[in-house]
Design a protein around this nucleic acid. Structure first.
Lengths: 210, 210
DNA sequence: TGAACAAGCACATGTTTATGTGATTGGCAG
DNA sequence: CTGCCAATCACATAAACATGTGCTTGTTCA
C-alpha cells in the first residue's frame, strides 16, 4: 500500500485526485492540504511514501514546500505537479531534490503509474519536462574545449596561477627560476589571448581548461 | 506517419521490433541495421524522424553512432535502447544529444508511445533512467552558496575584476576614484578570505558568486 | 641537418596591486 | 542622538606583475 499526501490549492482538483488515488488498489491518501504553510509538521506526522506537490499555491508555494521537506527528510518521494512546463521551476525543483515532475493534464491511469514509479525509486517525468532537463544538462556540459594548445608545463603553471600562487611561489614549487615562470606565463597569455593573471584565471574556469 | 530507423545487433529483437513498429498504425520502419558502421550515409539516405539505437553493438557502438549522427544532423530524434541503466552510458548519451533513453524491457505499447513522444519533441525516459539523470544534475548544481555578505557595490567591483578590468578601468567604469576601488577590493578580500585579485576571481567562479 | 619549438635563464623598465593609515559623508538601529 | 557601517576619497610604499630583448639546450620532424 503506497501512502500518499497531497498539496493542491484548487479544491476540485484536490478532491478529484484524492478520490482517484484513494479509490485505486494499492494506494491510500493520508491527507491533503491547500498550501505548504505547515508542511514540515504535517509530513513528519503522516510519514507518507509519496507527496504530490502542486507548484503554484498561495502562501508557501510548492518549491518552498519542497525545500522545507528536504531540509528535514530526504527519504520521502516528492512528485511536482504543474500546469506548465516552465523552465525556471523545473530547474529549481530538480536542484532541490524533487523526484519527478509531471503535468496536471497527465491522464489518471498514468498518474498512478508515476506514483508507483516514484515510490519504487524512479524519477517519473513527462516527456516534455524530460526534454527540458536534458537541454539544461547538455548546456552545462557543452563547453567545447578549444584546447589552445597549452603545453604540459604551461598547464601546470596555469593550474598554480588558478590556485592563487605568485610567480615566486610557482618558481619554488616547480624548481625553476622566476624568469622562466615569466616566460611561461607570457606564452600562456598569448595562447589564451589575454593580458593579465586574473583574465587567465577567469578563462581557465570558463573554458574548463583544468 | 512516423518514419523510424532501427539499429540493433540481435536479429530476433531487430525482427520483433520491426514487426511491432511497422505493424502499428502511424508508424513505418524505413530500414534496420545490425551496427553503426555506415550510420552517417544510411541516415542521410533514409531521412527518418526517429532512430532507435541500441547501445551495445559490435563494431561501431550506439554511443559512437549517436556522435556520428549528431555531427551531421541535429534534427532527427534519437532514442537510446539498452538492457541496463548503467551510469556511464546514460551520461555519455545525454551529453551527446540523445533525445531519450529507454530500457529494452519496456512493454511494446509503451515503446510506441515513447517513439511518438520523441517525434513530437519530448524526451521519453524510463523512470529509472530519469532518476539517474536527476542525480547527476543535482550533483553538478550542489555548490551551497556561502554568500559572504558582499554588499551590492562590492559585488559590482568583483564582477568587473572577474571580467578582467584593472583598478583604473573599474574606477572609470563606476565613476569613482581608484582609491575607492582599492578600499572596496580590500574589503572583498577580507570577506572572501583571500589576498590577491586572481584568488578572488577563482573563488568567484568556484562558489558561483556571480 | 636545419628549422621549429618547448623549456630554461637573465636583465631592465614601467605599471599594477596590496597594504597601511586616516578622513568625510549619510543612513539606520538601538 | 549616537555609535556603526557602507561608500567615498587621499597619500604613501613595497611587492608583484607585464613586457621587451636576448641567450642556451634539447627534441622533433620534414
Amino acid at each position: 500500500m503506497i501512502k500518499v499526501m497531497l498539496y493542491e490549492d484548487n479544491p476540485q482538483l484536490r478532491e478529484g485526485l484524492t478520490m482517484l488515488i484513494d479509490g485505486s488498489d494499492g494506494f491510500t491518501v493520508l491527507a491533503s492540504y491547500k498550501n505548504c504553510d505547515n508542511v514540515t509538521d504535517e509530513v513528519e506526522a503522516w510519514k507518507p511514501d509519496v507527496i504530490l506537490m502542486d507548484i503554484d499555491m498561495p502562501g508557501t508555494n510548492g518549491i518552498e514546500g519542497l525545500k522545507k521537506i528536504r531540509a528535514v527528510n530526504s527519504e520521502v518521494k516528492i512528485l511536482m505537479l504543474t500546469v506548465f512546463d516552465d523552465n525556471k521551476n523545473v530547474f529549481e525543483a530538480v536542484r532541490n531534490g524533487a523526484n519527478g515532475y509531471v503535468l496536471k493534464k497527465t491522464p489518471p491511469a498514468k498518474l498512478l503509474e508515476y506514483i508507483e514509479d516514484a515510490a519504487s525509486g524512479g524519477a517519473p517525468m513527462t516527456a516534455s519536462i524530460a526534454s527540458q532537463v536534458l537541454k539544461m544538462f547538455s548546456q552545462i556540459n557543452t563547453s567545447q574545449n578549444e584546447d589552445y594548445n597549452l603545453s604540459e608545463r604551461e598547464k601546470q603553471v596555469l593550474q598554480l596561477l588558478v590556485d592563487g600562487y605568485s610567480y615566486k611561489m610557482i618558481a619554488s614549487e616547480m624548481f625553476i627560476s622566476i624568469d622562466t615562470v615569466r616566460s611561461h606565463i607570457k606564452k600562456i597569455y598569448e595562447k589564451l589571448h589575454v593580458n593579465s593573471k586574473s583574465e587567465a584565471v577567469a578563462k581557465a574556469f570558463k573554458d574548463k581548461l583544468l
